[in-house]
Design a protein around this nucleic acid. Structure first.
Lengths: 133, 133
DNA sequence: TGTGAAAGTGAAAATCACTCTCAGCCCTTC
DNA sequence: GAAGGGCTGAGAGTGATTTTCACTTTCACA
């Protein structure tokens, strides 16, 4: 997909991208996770480089940042089709949910309020199947 | 609504509740804002009390916590009808948006995935009317 | 009213995620 | 191969939040 036209990146950024990609959609890595993995492959890489890389990759749309309330750190995942997230308030686990607000709804809201919507984030909270008992 | 049956709260928590209530729906206060206001009314109140109070009030459903990506601190607002939020990526302003995911959709998703949805958070991001030019 | 247990409290320190700065390095371009 | 710009790592700094602890208040019940 986007990889075919993506601009050349510094090799550390490539590394970060690979790590996030390798985690697969649905896995959610914190910057520290990513730093840990990156550090194994390229000891000496700095924390700031990881943050900078993630920021850049987000701008390019190659990875998505995910901010879940109640979780200290932001998490990152490979960017893919729009979807929502579900967080279990009991075990803290995060699941992907195949749901996106219909484009028509977005359009209507944007018109009503006079703003331009670039992204939407939907997070559900409750108890996952395993914690429901 | 919930106020009629709400359990008796320690007076500091009442104070915090009043402050958030007084801000009105659509205003978004950070813990520091709340602390500042609380401190005026009851000098000597501690920061930890404010955090503890907010946590409790959230649990009771009397106030809602709002975590907006890119904003350092969490913000709080009186709990009211379900609604979404819009954050302008240019000016950082936050607006309320009268939108909630239809209950039927929630039900379907919950059934599909086997979890119980207690709350949903919807945040849009883009440019507000004033920053659109 | 007296009493013990439980809950609440404030201050300060600790933690945690994240940002900033800066001097040096590397890679491209010419 | 020299110049310049982007990239880099380390470490200090920042700001939000949590934890801890000793003390106080509240409450149910005798």
């Amino acid at each position: 997909m986007a990889s075919s036209v993506r601009p050349k990146l510094p090799k550390n950024y490539e590394l970060i991208y690979e790590i996030v990609q390798a985690s697969g959609i649905g896995r959610h890595l914190t910057p520290s996770d990513i730093f840990a993995k990156a550090h194994k492959r390229r000891p000496g890489i700095g924390f700031s480089t990881v943050y900078r890389g993630l920021e850049r990759l987000c701008e390019l749309g190659l990875v998505s940042e995910l901010n879940v309330p109640g979780v200290g750190a932001a998490t990152y995942e490979p960017s893919g089709p729009r979807h929502a997230h579900f967080r279990c308030s009991a075990c803290g686990g995060i699941e992907d949910v195949a749901y996106a607000i219909p484009p028509r709804t977005l359009k209507t809201l944007a018109l009503q309020h006079g703003f331009k919507i670039a992204t939407e984030r939907v997070t559900f909270e409750g108890r996952c199947a395993a914690c429901s008992f």
